[in-house]
C-alpha cells in the first residue's frame, strides 16, 4: 500500500498530455487520490460561456483513477483504459480549479474497477461522476479473469 506514493510522482506535471493540461497532485487518503486541473482559457470547449471542454475532465479523471489503482496495488505497473463513462452533473465554473478524486473500489486479477468525482470545492456538489475499468497489462494471460 505504501510502495507507490502519488505525492512523489514528480514528473506528473511535466510529462505528456497531463503535463500540457497542467494536471498536478493534490491530496490523498486511505482509499482515494486527488489531482488538480487548474483553469486555463485554452481548454475551453464553449467560448461563449468559458466552460471547459469534456476532454480535460476525462484526462483528469483517467489519471486520478489510474493513480488510485497504482496506490491500491502498491506498484506502478502499466494498465490500459478499457472504458470510462463520465456523467456531467453541472458545468464547471469558469476560472476555478477542478479537483479530480479517483478511487479503485475493486481490484481483480486482470481488471481494476474505478469510480470518481470531479468538483471545485465541495465533493458533495460534483461537476462530474465517473466510472471505468482498466486492463492490467502485467496480468498473466492464462489466469486473466475479471
Amino acid at each position: 500500500m505504501t510502495a507507490f506514493d502519488p505525492a512523489r510522482f514528480t514528473r506528473l506535471d511535466q510529462y505528456g498530455h497531463g503535463g500540457r493540461l497542467g494536471i498536478r497532485y493534490h491530496a490523498k487518503a486511505e482509499d482515494w487520490v486527488e489531482l488538480a486541473l487548474p483553469y486555463a482559457a485554452d481548454q475551453v470547449g464553449d467560448p461563449s460561456t468559458g466552460v471547459l471542454a469534456s476532454g480535460p475532465i476525462v484526462t483528469l479523471m483517467d489519471m486520478a483513477t489510474s493513480m488510485a489503482v497504482w496506490t491500491r496495488r502498491g506498484v506502478f505497473a502499466p494498465h490500459a483504459t478499457l472504458d470510462l463513462r463520465v456523467d456531467y452533473c453541472r458545468p464547471a465554473t469558469p476560472g476555478e480549479t477542478v479537483i479530480g478524486r479517483g478511487e479503485c473500489y475493486r481490484l481483480a486479477r486482470a481488471v481494476a474497477f474505478v469510480r470518481g468525482i470531479a468538483y471545485h470545492r465541495d465533493p458533495a456538489d460534483p461537476i462530474a461522476h465517473v466510472a471505468g475499468t482498466f486492463m492490467l497489462m502485467d496480468a498473466p494471460a492464462k489466469q486473466a479473469r475479471a
Binding site: 505528456g16 476532454g55 476525462v58 483517467d62 470510462l84
Partner: peptide, 16 residues
Amino acid sequence: PVLGRPGFVHGGAIAG
C-alpha cells in the same frame, strides 16, 4: 502534448 504512457496517445486526448 498528447502523449500518455510512453509510445501511446493519452486516452484523455483520444476522448478529446
